[in-house]
Design a protein around this nucleic acid. Structure first.
Length: 478
RNA sequence: CGGGACGUAGCGCAGCCUGGCUAGCGUGUCUGGUUCGGGUCCAGAAGGUCGGAGGUUCAAAUCCUCUCGUCCCGACCA
């Protein structure tokens, strides 16, 4: 057992922080609530980014960049938006040694500037749809922060689209939600429930908000990504209008959607164990670590290292990138080197020792299960690829099973209370209440409505009001 | 922002109540030896203006005041 990591049972929050520290994913910055994303953590983000970015491009979106500073007046143009974000905005009041006439907000999200620009760019129905995404940092002055899950500054992607019709915009909102779901499941091995947010959980300024809700290994929910149908709210506020084919002016229908570095927190809390980080191969910066093992310098130089390097090159070739690492730190004992890769979540460790050279094999050890097998060196590449795929698949199915096993149905409010208190996890129940009812549930149970799953259209008697309600998932959330 | 706790070596802590040798311990780091296929063992060494400022005192890590910051629980949130 890792002696530098608190067990999940002892203290889940501490475990989470210990895992991050041991894997050197991030560190605290000198500014309150901010973090430094260290190279290993950033590499994970780059992988995550690439999968999403590819998916956005395939659905016709292009990247652009909008400025960090937003005139304060912009935020005030949309009533709900300003109410939602003003309290957590950092403002720039001075520049060039002078007080500014109008303060600038450091963007908490970019609907407003982008809306402003769209109003200039969009004139005609021929200009639509506009499908733009940006990768950037945003700042929200949160009261309580936690590495990756909630930091004052975070990295994310925000897609902003404008359409001619309501139907198109709704379709886009749901399309991107599904893109999120797919990437999260297939690449990050997260099991998520796509659904619609209730009124109390809606994005400020949105007509409808959708999210992908994931379950962490402590059974708490984490909103892993959101997609908003903004209706004509922002188009109205920023005068994003187009002339239709009949020649009259219409307001656009807009959407926005985002995923952030929070996803790294989701990956950590979904897959890792008490020994440290466990990464799905598809997001791991190093998919396989190759460790030549010997104390004999001559053996190392003459046979082990050349072979290790060759295997590494072959594997990189097959993986289509620099995803393997030859660990040449012979000044460490093998067990210390094992431990190093173990805590960094390297999915596959390949040991190459004198015994292996004699037998013509490589000792492969899986991070997720600890399972060891000896692979013929000739067959290493296809076998390693297969194992990596298997790790990816089994991490996903483990996450899915865990989520399903910890999802319960409540017939009544009392039952919901009992499940939240005793078992935790997701609780499905019919709900058709108001925002006030949502608040009551939160105050009395600590749980909030996470989403109304898209896959379940059933209706039933609301556990609070007794009227008709939709199947809704409640959980305590991050 | 409300309630609670805490700032002492990179990290984790003891010492403080009841002021007083050269401020300790674990771990990590460095050196030498030993060991070496899932965190060896032994020896030695480096590393601290005790969060900061002010005060009380012959004397402050310890007592008092202020201040900055962190963590936990709530409210708010990707």
């Amino acid at each position: 057992m890792a002696r530098n990591i608190t067990t999940r049972e002892q203290d889940y929050s501490q475990w989470y922080l210990d895992v991050i520290k041991a894997a050197e994913l991030a560190d605290y910055a000198p500014v309150k609530g901010c973090m430094v994303i260290r190279p290993t953590g950033y590499s994970i983000w780059e992988n995550v980014q690439r999968y999403f970015d590819d998916a956005f491009k395939r659905t016709g979106h292009k990247n652009a960049y909008f400025p960090l500073l937003i005139p304060n007046s912009f935020l005030e143009k949309e009533a709900e938006h300003v109410e939602g974000f003003a309290p957590e905005c950092a403002m720039v009041t001075h520049a060039g040694g002078e007080e500014l006439e109008e303060p600038f907000a450091i963007r908490p999200t970019s609907e407003t500037v982008i809306g402003h620009m769209y109003s200039k760019w969009i004139q005609s129905w021929r200009d639509l749809p506009v499908l733009i995404n940006q990768w950037c940092n945003v700042m929200r002055w949160e009261k309580r922060t936690r590495l990756f899950l909630r930091t004052s500054e975070f990295l994310w992607q925000e897609g902003h689209t404008a359409h001619a019709t309501r139907e198109e915009a709704v379709e886009e909102t749901l399309r991107m939600l599904d893109v999120y779901r797919k990437v999260m499941e297939e690449e990050l091995a997260l099991s998520v429930v796509p659904g619609e947010k209730t009124a109390g959980e809606r994005f400020p300024g949105a007509v409808d908000t959708y999210s992908c809700e994931a379950m962490m290994s402590d059974k708490k929910a984490l909103q892993a990504g959101t997609s908003h149908f903004l209706g004509q709210n922002f188009a109205r506020a920023f005068e994003i209008r187009f002339q239709n084919q009949a020649g009259s002016l219409e307001e656009c229908w807009t959407t926005s959607w985002g995923v952030s570095t929070r996803l790294i927190g989701a990956i950590i809390m979904t897959h890792s164990d008490d020994d440290g980080l466990v990464l799905p191969p598809r997001v791991a910066p190093v998919k396989a670590a190759i460790l030549p093992i010997s104390t004999d310098e001559k053996v190392i130089d003459d046979t082990l290292l050349p072979r290790a390097r060759k295997l590494s090159a072959q594997l990189d070739d097959a993986l289509g990138g620099l995803y393997t690492e030859v660990d040449t730190r012979f000044f460490l004992r093998p067990s210390d080197r094992f431990f190093y890769h173990l805590q960094r979540g390297v999915p596959l460790r390949l040991e190459l020792g004198e015994k292996d050279m004699k037998a013509g094999t490589v000792r492969a050890v899986r991070r997720d299960t600890g399972e060891k097998l000896d692979i013929a060196q000739d067959a290493l590449v296809p076998t390693a690829l297969k194992i990596l795929e298997d790790i990816q698949a089994s991490l996903y199915s483990r996450a899915k099973t865990f989520r399903e096993d910890n999802t319960h149905f409540a017939e009544s409010y009392d039952e919901l209370k009992a499940i939240i208190e005793e078992k935790g996890g997701f609780v499905e129940a019919y709900f058709g209440g108001t925002q006030g009812d949502e608040r009551t549930v939160r105050e009395e149970t600590g749980a909030t409505p996470r989403c109304v799953p898209l896959s379940d259209h059933s209706t039933g008697k609301c556990i609070i009001t007794g009227k008709e309600g939709r199947k809704t998932i409640f959980a305590r959330a991050y």
